[in-house]
Design a binder for these strands. Structure first.
Lengths: 143, 143
DNA sequence: CTGAAATGTAACAACATCAGTTACATCAAA
DNA sequence: TTTGATGTAACTGATGTTGTTACATTTCAG
């Protein structure tokens, strides 16, 4: 499976902002976050823009600009982050429409689709069990 | 997420072979299966080769060649198929090693890894609930 | 022992996605 | 007005997926 790291980087960024604010700072810059994640600031800004659209982060422009959390870490689950940054489903049906004359070709799409819905639901339920507060706590405990 | 259709096509192929054998035929050819799936026979052969490696299918060469199931449809779950054709995990950690000087950069990898393990487990448990016999039954009932 | 029909597999093209990067317009506080 | 950050388009390189062609290999039938 072509796994991507958007959920990882997005969770990392939000957790970093949360800790930074908790330490008394107003805003976090994409450059600071990028240093911690070890990537380019534009990658961070692109992801945070999606998180802002989902109501998880906010940005200020101009001098003294940067990013803040829109919600407490304890109210943001990994499912929220997942939904903000992962558009598509995990499994895809056929690339080309199968042969409708064939019984299997005709019926298997909806059947597998139902199964895939169940898989997505299980995946989401699992992600919903962890908040970013949990993540930060475990991170600090692991130090 | 870059969803692929390998699980779909592989399940389709195995179900097709199962039904074909149940109707009294010895072997199924990659061309017949490809017609039902609406793809190229080589795509089917590549996937079936992986399924053979996993002990789910077998092939005969030469004249009168083709594919057979190694196990009954009722003993093959979608998890078996998933494990045969999907190598990687669903979520990836960081593309580049994060900053180890940073508390978050240092600790978040293992924490998210644990969460991702749970997600994978939930996904697998869900896939394990459905056998190809279930799929075939639902396909035939939907006709 | 030869031909036919299928698998086995390499090689390549087309397309999409992801991560990284550069460049630059835009904005707002000091 | 300067400054330091965001906003965003555009491009690159790497990689993965699907489809396709080509051809060697295998084995049965006759």
């Amino acid at each position: 499976m072509s796994a991507n790291s958007r959920l990882t980087v997005a969770a990392h960024a939000l957790t970093w902002i949360g800790l930074y604010q908790r330490r008394g700072h107003e805003v976090a810059t994409s450059e600071q976050i990028a240093t911690s994640v070890n990537t380019n600031p534009v990658v961070i800004r692109r992801l945070l823009a999606q998180l802002r659209k989902a109501g998880l982060a906010d940005s200020r422009r101009g001098a003294g600009a940067g990013w803040t959390l829109s919600r407490e870490l304890s109210t943001i689950t990994l499912l929220d982050v997942y939904e903000a940054v992962e558009p598509g489903p995990v499994f895809a049906l056929h690339p080309a429409t199968p042969d409708h004359e064939c019984v299997v070709g005709h019926g298997i799409g909806p059947v597998l689709g139902t199964v895939y819905d169940g898989v997505e639901a299980a995946l989401r339920a699992e992600l919903a069990r962890t908040t970013l507060e949990d993540v930060l706590r475990d991170v600090l405990n692991s130090a």
